[in-house]
């Protein structure tokens, strides 16, 4: 039996499709009324097996703004999963109630398992430390709108590059554009995993450098992508406490940066970007959160075959 198209990894989307999604998102931003009834009569199910505020709300807002409805499971602990139901069974059941599923789960690969069983499209809204494609869609639209394109950019990725799923997805997506260069800024213990370096960067012949110093790298960057060191990804609390404050971006640190460098962060932040940076015109992270909603709208439309 053929399954409907799902998006589990950002690489499930071709660069042509990414470009098309960005065009639709920009059109939604310019003409929101045109899209207000596109998903009339359609239902999105949000299945969140681990806590999330912004991703879930962004998906829900996206569906409401397309004129559709939302049904939700917001807490895995009180759901069928707590009674031992498999992800596969949950996906089959929810397919009976909704036209599309957005799912977050703490286990890596859970969204793929759901997509293999569901009879409606599944969008991975984060599977542990593995993939988070719709965050990458938000990141791409933000870079595109702030920098006018992707070619020949030097992108600094800073913080937790080991467990940061948004980083892995972003590296994969940006590597498909010409002349992109990465500066990987992290403590030794949180470096980008070898499989991303080998499979994506080395194989694609992408230029990259690794450093533990943000100060050394910041002057060469067109984009600085900050990440949070996430407590929930560590088995050992001591390791988390030792590494959590490795990089804190302050106005002082920004003095050495280009005047048009774009600062992105997938949010939520804890303290890795000082609040004093928020008023700097280079700070794009709140615009990035808004962009995420528009890209999710475009993606929902595409997967439902509604003209994106």
């Amino acid at each position: 039996m053929s399954r409907p198209r799902s998006v589990i990894d950002i690489l499930d989307l071709s660069t042509d499709e990414l470009d098309a999604l960005m065009r639709v998102a920009e059109d939604i931003i310019a003409y929101p009324d045109k899209y207000a009834e596109v998903c009339h009569g359609k239902k999105l199910a949000t299945l969140f097996f681990e806590p999330s505020t912004r991703t879930r709300m962004s998906f829900e807002a996206a569906m409401y703004e397309l004129g559709g409805h939302v049904i939700s499971m917001t807490d895995g602990a009180s759901s069928s999963a707590s009674k031992g139901e498999s992800v596969s069974d949950t996906a089959k059941i929810v397919s009976c109630y909704a036209d599309i599923i957005a799912m977050r789960h703490p286990k890596e690969g859970a969204a793929l398992v759901a997509a293999q069983s569901a009879t409606v499209p599944v969008v991975n809204a984060g599977d542990g430390g593995h993939c988070h494609p719709t965050q990458t869609l938000a990141d791409l639209l933000t870079i595109y709108r702030e920098k006018g394109g992707f070619s020949n950019l030097t992108v600094g990725l800073c913080g937790d590059l080991k467990f940061g799923r948004t980083v892995h997805s972003l590296v994969g997506a940006l590597s498909r554009y010409e002349g992109i260069k990465f500066i990987l800024i992290s403590p030794e213990e949180l470096r980008l995993p070898d499989y991303v370096k080998n499979d994506v960067l080395d194989r694609g012949g992408i230029q990259y450098a690794e450093t533990s110093s943000l100060d050394d790298a910041i002057g060469s960057l067109d984009v600085l992508y900050m990440t949070r060191v996430q407590r929930e990804r560590f088995f050992n609390e001591e390791d988390y406490l030792r590494l959590k404050d490795s990089y804190i971006l302050t106005p002082d640190k920004l003095r050495g940066a280009k005047s048009d460098m774009a600062i992105l962060h997938p949010l939520p932040r804890v303290n890795e970007i000082s609040v004093a940076v928020d008023d700097d015109p280079r700070a794009c992270y709140f615009r990035q959160a808004a962009n995420g909603k528009y890209m999710r709208m475009a993606l929902i439309m595409m997967l439902l075959g509604l003209g994106a």
Binding site: S88, P106, K107, E108, G109, D127, G128, G129
Partner: peptide, 21 residues
């Protein structure tokens, strides 16, 4: 062997590997 993999909790899943390189 990844303790975070879905196959560790959903025991009925096939263990599937792809040739990556």
């Amino acid at each position: 062997r990844n303790p975070r993999c879905i196959t560790t909790t959903e025991q009925e899943l096939d263990q599937v590997f792809r040739l990556s390189d």
